[in-house]
Design a protein around this nucleic acid. Structure first.
Lengths: 132, 132
DNA sequence: CACTTATTTAGAACCATTATAAACTAGGAC
DNA sequence: GTCCTAGTTTATAATGGTTCTAAATAAGTG
């Protein structure tokens, strides 16, 4: 299985649940955005056995820590994650509550001129809110 | 009182509670960021009577709708608000969990090249995450 | 003052997320 | 293979920020 090494290499035991979640998250043509509830639904649709909600949370957090997933900074009652962990930005359609990817080339280079002593920039994320 | 007209003009009755919350939010030299809990604490420190938590939520949402406050898009268990409603961006210090203003001049102009049919850009917000 | 509508309030309800602690499993040693 | 240990899964309870509810109060209008 192609995800066994990926997991082992990052110090995560390749359990059945994690491998199945990998299939749902990473065995896709396109990257996508999701909430935990949406992911739970996808898992239900794709596999036969049941994965506990706690395990879904645990796994998503573990994958995020290892850099396989990213949280998307947005104000919502639910946390949004992204399987696209490359540097890129988002549109957020306020009416439909939908996220849309912005490629890096869709946004000019962003030049942060201010520096904070002793701190490094970890990420720069742009959220473009859309209305009708 | 200087906030009575502000409230009346936006169709909000100038109640004692709203005026007191105005004092805490807007009668300051500098703008600031806050969560509802932090605001509640500030109110407690500054005024004698008690304002119900529900009223604090109601008022903050009313002020947000009228454009006197802005939500800051960030992943946190609490919602962050900003009394600075001009276009500007933020640093977020991951270690200290502190927000720091970035003036517009600290960030070059941001040019969103992609267009979505039938949608207008309402806002462009940049979040720069900092680590040690 | 009388009346209508908006606002405040305490407390309950909601619900995403996290904690708990017991059962289970992977992987290494032998 | 068996044994062992640490890591993982699981159902369920707990947490906590936010929203809802419905009754009491206050503001505005005539």
């Amino acid at each position: 299985m192609k995800y066994i090494d990926k997991l082992r290499n990052s110090g995560l035991r390749p359990t059945k649940q994690r491998l199945q979640i990998c299939e749902v998250l990473f065995n896709t043509e396109k990257t996508f955005h999701f909430t935990i509830n949406e992911l739970e639904q996808k898992i239900k649709d794709k596999i036969d056995n049941k994965i506990s909600l706690a395990t879904v949370y645990n796994t998503v957090h573990a994958f995020e820590k290892k850099g396989y997933l990213k949280q998307i900074p947005i104000n919502s009652n639910q946390t949004y994650f992204d399987t696209n962990v490359t540097d890129h930005h988002h549109f957020y359609d306020l009416k439909d509550q939908k996220l849309i990817d912005l490629e890096n080339s869709d946004v000019g280079p962003i030049n942060i001129k201010k520096k904070i002593n002793g701190k490094r920039i970890k990420s720069v994320e742009v959220l473009v809110k859309l209305e009708d």
